[in-house]
Amino acid sequence: MDALALLSFGPTGWGDEIAWGVLVTVSLALATLPFGLALGFLVALAKQSPEPSLRAAGQIYTTIFRGLPELLTLFLVYFGVQIGLQRIVRLVIPDAAIEVNSFVAGMIALGVVFSSYASEVFLSAFKAIPRGQYEGGHALGLTDAQTMRLVILPQLLRVALPGLGNLWLILVKDTALVSAIGLSDILRQAGIAARVSREQFLFFGVAILIYLALAVISSAGISAIERRVGRARPAR
């Protein structure tokens, strides 16, 4: 069979399966992003707090999730969280079944990894904001939370944007690991197609090209956002 027929949509081609894989990859990355950003911001808040115990707690978090291989974190979440939650829940409801499906497991694992790196990006962005901004906020009679939301956060995001853009690109690549816990992402679908049709080079090549296209689209999107935010910085 020639390459076009193999990549066609329909019952004999693998085009539709791979398109589904693209959808899974993209939605996993998009679902992980807000979760990872929020968690990363909270961890950064903890790490820049004047309170030593809070700083230490944040530091432990980053040390663990930046130190473990992503693939291992994924397995720990996929098997471990499932077993752990099951045991806890069964104390209350004896025959409950907990479903941590591979999508949720992937989201949690990639989210914690993303957040530990994002917290570092936020942390250095915090350092770039002068104390005067906080003082100005207080002088206007804003509460701590208001100062954070109205004064600091908008500037913080602008400073953190290039770093976060990089992390997004890493996140898209890291989604490939979920193929190892059975989620039908691009790489897994391509792998199944490659094994069954025995056109290994074709399908893994196609997978690489799709990831490359995602990277190009992401970079374009990120620079568009940076331009809109107005303080585009040279890419690093």
């Binding site: 690991l177 790489l187 490659a194 080079f201 893994f204 997978a207 990831y211 490359l212």
Partner: peptide, 21 residues
Amino acid sequence: YVFRGTPLLAQTFLIYYGFGS
């Protein structure tokens, strides 16, 4: 761009299984 823009796992598969054919 190519090597940083695509997953290492996909690159490894391409080289191991792809070159195998």
